[in-house]
Structures are given as structure tokens and as C-alpha cells.
């Protein structure tokens, strides 16, 4: 039983679906960030798998940049979340429906 590229792509799809469900049903913003991490990681798996099965290093390079973007996203997002929590004392998504600061 040989593990091919399609196995990895299907796994990546399942993980992406889980992350998408999380983005849709979470109301707490911290939990929303967790779901975003799942989305980015599922894409990384498919990048690494394509890189391996085509003998090309470009996929791994893109996975590195995705990891860098995820790290900076967490830094900025958590900073903004702390500012919001100091101001409004909650981090629910519904409290942000108005764009007033």
C-alpha cells in the first residue's frame, strides 16, 4: 500500500475543512486565531507533499514563508486583541460589528 500525493492532498483538505468550520462557528477571537493556524498548517502539508512528489524545493520555500507570515500574524493579532480587551473587557466577535474605535 503506497502512500501517494493524493493521500496527502486529501488529508490537507480534511484539515482545511476542520479549520474552516472553526472559523465559521467560533465567536471568541482567540479561538478564531486557533482556527486560522489550522488553515495555514493544512496548506503547509500539501506544499511539502507536492515538493516531495515532484522533486522540487519550491513548495518547501513557500511553506517557510507561510510559517513566517503565521508568526507575524500572531504577534500583531494578539497585540490588537490585548488593546481591544483593555478597552471593552471582552473579545467576542459580535462586539466588533460596528467599526467605531
Amino acid at each position: 500500500m503506497e502512500i501517494g500525493l493524493n493521500h496527502y492532498l486529501v488529508l490537507s483538505t480534511i484539515l482545511f475543512a476542520i479549520g474552516l468550520v472553526g472559523v465559521m462557528r467560533r465567536k471568541n477571537l482567540l479561538m478564531l486565531f486557533f482556527a486560522t493556524e489550522i488553515l495555514l498548517n493544512s496548506v503547509n502539508i500539501s506544499f511539502a507533499a507536492i515538493s516531495h512528489y515532484y522533486g522540487d524545493l519550491t513548495g518547501q520555500m513557500f511553506a517557510f514563508f507561510v510559517i513566517a507570515i503565521a508568526a507575524s500574524e500572531v504577534a500583531v493579532g494578539l497585540g490588537l486583541l490585548i488593546v481591544w480587551h483593555k478597552k471593552h473587557n471582552n473579545i467576542d466577535l459580535d462586539s466588533m460589528s460596528t467599526m467605531r474605535g
Binding site: I69, S72, E73
Partner: peptide, 17 residues
């Protein structure tokens, strides 16, 4: 460019928090 972006993220994290 990714290195500069990480620097920007670090500074913004410090300033925000």
C-alpha cells in the same frame, strides 16, 4: 522581505501591548 515583515510585526506587537 519576510525578515522586514517579522521586524514590523515585532515592533507593532511591542507598541500595541
Amino acid at each position: 522581505v519576510a525578515a522586514v515583515m517579522l521586524l514590523v510585526a515585532m515592533i507593532s506587537g511591542i507598541v500595541l501591548a
